[in-house]
């Protein structure tokens, strides 16, 4: 388990990163925290000619509020997400999910941008981005663009970030006073890839749900929003009856992948159980 040989470059700026990528003839990959890239190299799952370290690029760091949006730099470490007061206030769902990401030491070095670009369907933050309707700011030599989370996660380990492009930051609409959210996952051991995970964000006024977003992880090649379930929740009273209907609706929303350890019927069952628990928690908090 030793990585194949490659050359290593450090990019002080975005422009340098693009130039280095260009010079590498497309056989280069970017390195942020390295916690997805380095093990994949050790396993020889990929063999790039060049690694371009983008950790020092200034645009990639920092968390700040900008015009009703929380801007989170792509190099932000999971541990910073967990501890940051702005995240806790403006994106509580993200803060709730952070402790579920792997283990403490991984969270010290792993970055949210690297995590999102790795696009592991069992990972927590991609599902959270879907539920938060975040926008991904992608930099390319020709300029920056923003991609909504729903268009960012294209397929298994595949994102809208084209080769050579760099995820610079994510922009999260800040939570309102009536925003309620919940996150949990069911895994066999703490920090494991979850058998199922769910992020819920709703607006709750006088017991009635508005703008429901429900996103699941570990249900297929990408994290999924569940439109049928959300339609049930929209404008409904948060009650046991609503929760049961929302659980039912998941059958049409989800078509989990084949996996001998967690067959599709079990995955769907666990999705229903977890959704019921999270909505029940929101209902209890409300009462």
């Amino acid at each position: 388990m030793k990585a194949p040989a490659f050359t290593f470059e450090r990019a002080p700026t975005l422009g340098d990163a693009f130039d280095l990528f260009e010079a590498g003839g497309g056989e280069a990959i970017y390195l942020a925290g390295g916690h997805s890239v380095v093990p994949s190299l050790a396993l020889r799952l990929q063999a790039p000619e060049t690694l371009i370290d983008i950790a020092a690029i200034p645009e990639l760091s920092g968390i700040r509020e900008e015009a009703g949006m929380l801007r989170i730099g792509a190099m932000t470490r999971h541990a910073e997400i967990l501890a940051d007061p702005l995240v806790a206030t403006h994106a509580p769902l993200l803060a709730m999910a952070a402790p579920h990401v792997a283990h403490p030491a991984i969270r010290n070095r792993g970055t949210i941008g690297g995590n999102l670009c790795h696009a592991d369907p069992a990972s927590e933050f991609p599902a959270v981005m879907l539920a938060l309707e975040a926008e991904m700011e992608i930099a390319a030599p020709e300029g920056h663009r923003r991609v909504p989370a729903r268009d960012f996660f294209v397929d298994l380990y595949e994102t809208a970030c084209a080769p050579g492009e760099i995820l610079v930051a994510l922009h999260v609409p800040v939570a309102g006073p009536a925003t309620r959210c919940a996150f949990d996952e069911i895994s066999r051991r703490r920090g494991d890839y979850a058998m199922i995970g769910c992020a819920v964000q709703i607006t709750l006024e006088a017991g009635r749900i508005a703008d429901p977003r429900v996103a699941f992880l570990s249900v297929g090649a990408t994290p999924r929003r569940v439109p049928g379930c959300e339609a049930v929740l929209h404008d409904a009273l948060l009650s046991a009856a609503t929760i049961a209907k929302a659980q039912d609706a998941l059958g049409a929303d989800l078509d989990p992948m084949d996996d001998p350890n967690v067959p599709p019927a079990m995955r769907l069952h666990l999705a229903r159980v977890l959704l019921g628990r999270l909505l029940g928690q929101l209902e209890n908090d409300h009462v």
Binding site: R188, M195, N261, V262, P263, A265, M266, H269
Partner: peptide
């Protein structure tokens, strides 16, 4: 495993 327990419970058939 959870799967085997859910099968024993006939939750998963």
């Amino acid at each position: 495993t959870p799967l085997r327990i859910l099968r024993a419970l006939k939750t998963i058939t």
